[in-house]
Amino acid sequence: MTPKCKLVKYIDALDFALYEMVLYLDTHPHDKKALAAFEEYKRRRKEAIKEYERNYGQYLRMAKKTKPDGSWNWIKGPWPWEYEKEEA
């Protein structure tokens, strides 16, 4: 696995952890430990995106943004349901 691929996986794992905390907080809205964990995962995600952008340019995967070459990024495949031989 390339370092870039590893970093993307790490961001995905944080996205999952954040969503898991959302469900937990819905039924434990005053749990201080859970609230702190949520904020911590959010902070780590922000850091990881920063690291990605330092090394590989814009984190465009989910953004509806203009690519550095001035074109519309959003429609660029592969789309999530498509089989990918090797992760980029």
């Binding site: 959302v22 469900l23 819905d26 349901w81 498509e82």
Partner: peptide, 30 residues
């Protein structure tokens, strides 16, 4: 309110799950 939130958030995650199932069916029949 808390359970409106829970239904919204679990219901939203289920949309992501049906997308995973569809991705599996799509890839298995290519």
């Amino acid at each position: 309110d808390d359970l409106k939130g829970l239904l919204t958030d679990v219901g939203t995650e289920e949309l992501a799950h049906l997308e995973m199932i569809c991705a599996m069916v799509h890839q298995l029949t290519r």
